[in-house]
Simulated scan of single mutants.
Amino acid sequence: MAKSLASFAPTPTFKGTADVPVAGKGPQPLGLTFRFHDTEAMKALSAEFTALQDKYKATAEAPLSDEQEKDMRTDQAKLVMKIVSAWEFTDDFSVENITQFFVTHAFAFGAIVTGFFQAHSGAKTKN
């Protein structure tokens, strides 16, 4: 049975889940609509993630200032806007709302990025 290359074309967006740690509740699934990125775009995203980590690297001797933490959350939100097109919350999907979400959910950025790469690669999670 012959197939064409077009039959393997990815969809521009696809559903996925990020397991966001919530204090007192453990990881909670957050439904997201992710954006497809081709190989070149994935390389660029990887470079952006690395640059973001390097820019806001804190140590015990040199913690981030309040202003740097605020800037970091905004930069993280802008990066999330590149990989996600919608979320299951009724609140608008915007840089401002994502940034506020990161204020109260410190590990949400990492969970969303992990969910993106798992959904993008088609990786299955354990039951």
Rank of each mutant, 00 (worst) to 15 (best):
T99K: 14
F93Q: 01
T50A: 13
E96V: 09
A44Y: 09
S4R: 14
H105Q: 02
F89L: 11
P12C: 02
H105F: 10
Q100A: 10
I112A: 01
A6T: 15
T33I: 10
L45V: 13
T17S: 05
F89C: 01
F107T: 03
A111D: 04
S65R: 05
F34I: 07
A2F: 15
F49G: 01
K82D: 09
W87A: 00
V20N: 00
L45N: 13
F102V: 01
R73M: 14
M1Y: 10
T74Q: 13
E67F: 04
N127D: 09
F116K: 05
M42K: 15
V84H: 00
K82F: 10
Y56V: 05
T39I: 08
H37K: 15
A23Y: 04
K15L: 05
A6E: 15
D91Y: 04
T59E: 02
P10K: 08
F109Q: 03
A108G: 03
D38W: 14
A23D: 03
S4L: 12
L30W: 02
A41K: 13
T33H: 03
T17L: 06
P63H: 03
G16F: 00
N97A: 03
G16S: 03
A41M: 11
A47H: 13
G31T: 11
P63Q: 12
W87Q: 08
A111K: 02
S94F: 03
S7T: 13
F101N: 02
D71Q: 15
M72I: 03
F102M: 11
Q100T: 12
T125L: 05
L64R: 15
S121I: 06
H120A: 15
G110N: 13
T99C: 07
F117W: 13
L32D: 03
R73Q: 10
G16L: 00
V80S: 09
F8S: 14
A77K: 02
T90K: 15
D66I: 10
K78Y: 04
L5H: 09
F117C: 11
P63T: 08
S121D: 12
A18Y: 00
E69P: 06
N97L: 07
F36M: 12
N127K: 15
K124F: 06
M72S: 12
P29Q: 07
D66F: 11
K15E: 14
A111R: 03
S4Q: 15
K15G: 08
A44E: 13
R73I: 09
K126E: 04
A23I: 04
F36A: 07
S85F: 06
T59C: 05
R73V: 10
V20L: 02
L30N: 01
